[in-house]
Design a protein around this nucleic acid. Structure first.
Lengths: 148, 148
DNA sequence: TATTGTTATACTCTATAACTATA
DNA sequence: TATAGTTATAGAGTATAACAATA
C-alpha cells in the first residue's frame, strides 16, 4: 500500500499482486453493478455455469455461511436467474442450477468482462502477455487454486 | 469461468487474471474479517497511510458515493481508527487521517497480507517471481493505475 | 445425534433523495 | 448556483442463533 519504503523482493511482488487484484475486482464489480449483481453472486453464477452444486457446497466454495447462501440464492431465484430443486440422493439437500435466463446473463458477463479487461492486458505486447499468462497459470495450478 | 471451451489467447489471460484476483481478494477479505474490516475500509486505511485526503477525494478514489464514504468514515472514526478535521483552505471540506491506532492496524494488516500471500507467490521460483513482478508493474504503470 | 437447509435478527455496505453550510 | 458533507431511508450482503426435516 505504501510505495516509499524499501520492500523485499517478495513484498514488492505481493504489492503488485494486490494492486492488480484491486483494479481487476473494481472492473468486475462495476460490470456487476450494471446488472445489479454483487461479486459474490457473480462468482456463484460462474460456478453454476457447468455445475449443479448443493447449497452447502456453494457456501463452502465461496467461504460464506450457509444462511448467507440461502439468502443469496433466494434473491437470485426470485429474479429468475437460478432454480432450487430437492436432491434425490439426500432428502435434506438442495441442488441449485442456472435458468436459461441465468445462463444467458453469465455469457453476457463473460463477454463484458473480457472487453473491460482487454485494455489492461493490451498494455503488454503479445509475447509479454503470453509470459504473464504462463506465470499466472503456473502459480494457480501449483496451489490447486479454484477461482470460480 | 468455464474451462472446457476453447478461448483465444487474450481470453485465457483474462481468465487467469480474474482467477488470480478472486483468490487474492478472498485472502485479503479473510484477513480483514478477522479485524472486522471490509475490503473498502481496508483500501481507505491503506490510502490514509501516507495521505490526508478530503471525503470527496476518498469517495472518488474508491468509486463510491460521498454518502457511502460518510458512513464508512463515521464508523471508522467511532472505532478510533481515523479522525475528521475541518479543512482550513475550504470551509466546506473535511480532511481525514489515521489515528496512531489506525496506523498500527495498517502496519499489522500489511504484515498479515504479506504472510498470507507468500505461499501463493512462493509456488514460483525466484526468477519467475522477478519476471511476474516486472510484467505486473509494467501493466499497471502503462495504465496509470492506482491500486491504493 | 449429526447434517442440510431455512427463518429470525442485527449490523455493515451501498445507493437515492433531501438537507445544511460554505464558495 | 454549485460544491462538500451529513442525515434519512431502503435494500443487499453478511454473521450468530434458533429451528425443522432428514439421515
Amino acid at each position: 500500500m505504501k510505495k516509499e519504503h524499501s520492500l523485499s523482493a517478495g513484498e514488492e511482488l505481493v504489492d503488485a499482486l494486490m494492486t492488480t487484484s484491486f483494479i481487476t475486482m473494481a472492473i468486475i464489480n462495476k460490470i456487476g453493478a450494471e446488472h445489479d449483481l454483487s461479486l459474490s453472486l457473480i462468482r456463484v453464477l460462474g460456478i453454476l455455469w457447468d455445475r449443479r452444486p448443493r447449497m452447502t457446497e456453494l457456501a463452502d466454495y465461496l467461504g460464506l455461511e450457509k444462511q448467507t447462501m440461502s439468502g443469496l440464492i433466494a434473491r437470485a431465484e426470485k429474479r429468475g436467474l437460478v432454480v432450487r430443486a430437492a436432491c434425490k440422493d439426500d432428502g435434506r439437500a438442495t441442488e441449485v442450477f442456472l435458468t436459461k435466463e441465468g445462463a444467458e446473463l453469465v455469457k453476457q458477463l463473460r463477454d463484458q468482462g473480457q472487453q473491460a479487461l482487454m485494455p489492461l492486458i493490451e498494455s503488454l505486447n503479445a509475447s509479454d502477455q503470453q509470459r504473464l499468462q504462463e506465470l499466472l497459470l503456473r502459480m494457480l495450478n501449483a496451489k490447486g487454486a479454484r477461482g470460480n
